[in-house]
Structures are given as C-alpha cells and as structure tokens.
Design a binder for these strands. Structure first.
Length: 270
DNA sequence: TGACCCCTGGCC
DNA sequence: GGCCAGGGGTCA
C-alpha cells in the first residue's frame, strides 16, 4: 500500500513484529524484487539478525539489523508485509522472515513492482534512491518558500510535480488528488503558475490529507486491503460523478500525467 | 513530456 | 474479454 501514510503504517507494524525477536531464518525466491543484491544475499545476511531500527523516507522503508545489515523495501503498487502463523502461506509471498513463536513475516507482491535490496545498514540513508528524495512532508515538514521555488521552475502540471519524489517524498496519486482539492487548485495548472499564497494552501492541503489518514487505526488505512470491504475514505479520490463535498457539482475525471485525476471543476479553478 | 513497460487481479 | 489500478523506470 504505497503512499506515505500506508508506508508509515507498514513501518510501525514492522517495528512491532520485529521488536526484540531475532530472525530465525530468512528465505527468498529469485524474483525481480531483488535488483542490486540477489535473493541469496537476503537469506544469508538476514538470518539470525535482530532488528534495530525501521525508518521511512517518503515511500521507502529502511530496516537496520544488528551486524550492520540493512534492508531497503519499496512496496511498489501492490507490495505489503504481512505476519502469518508458520503453517499459513499467503498468496504471492516472495520473501519470508521466520520469527520465534511460529510466526512468519511475508513480503507479498502480486505485481512484483516493489523492490528489496540488501545493503550495509550504515549506507541506507546514503543510497542514491534515498538521497534523490525531496523533503518528507511529515518528517521534514513542508517549507512553503522552498516548495514554491521548486514549482516555479517547471511547466509541468502541479499534480505531476507534487508526485515527483524529488519534489516531495511520499505523495502519490491519491494524496495529490486529495491535497489539490483541499487547496482549491486545479490539478492541471502549470506548476509555475501557482502564487506563493496558493502554494501555502497546497502545503496545508497536503498536511491535512496525510494527517487525517495517519491518525486513523490500521484497518481503516487499508483502503482496498484484504476483504476490500473498507469504504473509500477520501473526499474526491475515486469519486468521479459524485457531488463535490463542498459545492455539490459533479466531480470530474481527467487523465493528467498519465494518471486518473478527480477534481471539482468549480472549486478547483484551472 | 508523453508513451510505453513491468505484472496480476478485480471489476464492469 | 477488456479496462483499470495507489509505483517507478526508460525511451524517443
């Protein structure tokens, strides 16, 4: 579950599940998830290790184990970490961490868009993919002047720009859609056309959209999770044709930067 | 900047 | 049986 709040939730559950307990055995299949390192490295290095720290930067999870073993985990579109009794193997489990108490942590990812990389723990924050990330809206906060500066420099649609992980780390299609609605800014507006005042509203919109979900219990965060019974908790995302929560006009949908964008044509001026 | 790719699953 | 999907990467 890919955007910032879902990855933050993954980080906190991993902290709970891996707290104190050594990994009895690590196993992994040879899949595309492993790029830099291979699956054997995962098995060799993680077996016997204890978790020391889980960090999140944007949508990237960074796990540090004792013995200077580091694991980078990106969930892609459909990746997730789940904990199951040893006898129960979930579908599309490609890597496993066996824990004491007959539990196994599985990394499941049907589409294999995620990635797993084994590194030295001390190197995690210096990895190019991590260094390339822009500020994390929750960890670093949003500096309105700096964001305005970044947006001024590009003619891209503002929605595309804020989904660029080098501009802000952790924003994907859902929270970009929600934030722009909250800010009353049309998603197709050229980024450089935003005034300082609008960037300020956008920053507040991003913080509000993220904050609302971050404050919720886990089951509600799992939009489209197992079971799928959870209702759409968003104001406009995936609500094309429904009335705008502010003015009542039907919400519109357009593809911007290759991704579906829902917005109110009246509240979000183009 | 857009088009296309990587994949599978769920929905119409 | 198509179409769509929250991620990112590459190519022209």
């Amino acid at each position: 579950m890919p955007e910032l709040p879902e990855v933050e939730h993954a980080a906190s559950t991993l902290r709970l599940w891996l707290a104190e307990a050594p990994v009895l055995r690590a196993r992994a299949a040879a899949t595309r998830l492993f790029r830099a390192g291979d699956h054997r490295l995962f098995e060799q290095r993680l077996t016997g290790r204890r978790l020391e720290r889980v960090e999140r930067r944007g949508k990237v999870l960074l796990l540090s184990f004792d013995g200077d073993v580091g694991l980078l985990s990106h969930l892609g579109m459909t990746g997730k970490w789940v904990r199951r009794p040893g006898s129960d193997t979930p579908a599309h489990s490609h890597a496993q961490l066996e824990l004491p108490g007959a539990f196994v942590l599985h990394y499941c990812d049907p589409r294999l868009f995620g990635r797993l990389e084994v590194h030295r723990a001390v190197d995690l924050l210096d990895l190019p993919v991590v260094r390339a990330l822009g500020p994390d809206p929750i960890l670093d906060g949003i500096d309105v002047a700096a964001l305005h500066g970044r947006l001024e420099g590009t003619a891209r649609a503002v929605k595309v720009a804020i989904m660029d992980q080098a501009v802000l780390a952790g924003i994907g299609n859902i929270y970009a859609t929600e934030a722009l609605f909250r800010a009353g800014i049309h998603p197709a507006r050229p980024a450089r056309s935003l005034t300082r005042r609008e960037v300020g509203r956008l920053a507040k919109g991003i913080e509000a959209a993220l904050g609302e979900v971050l404050g919720r219990p886990a089951e509600e965060i799992a939009y489209l999770s197992e079971g799928g019974a959870v209702q759409n908790p968003f104001l406009v995302y995936d609500r094309e044709g429904e009335p705008c929560p502010r003015c009542g006009r039907a919400l519109e949908k357009r593809v911007i930067g290759g991704r579906a964008s829902v917005f109110c044509g009246r509240c979000q001026k183009g």
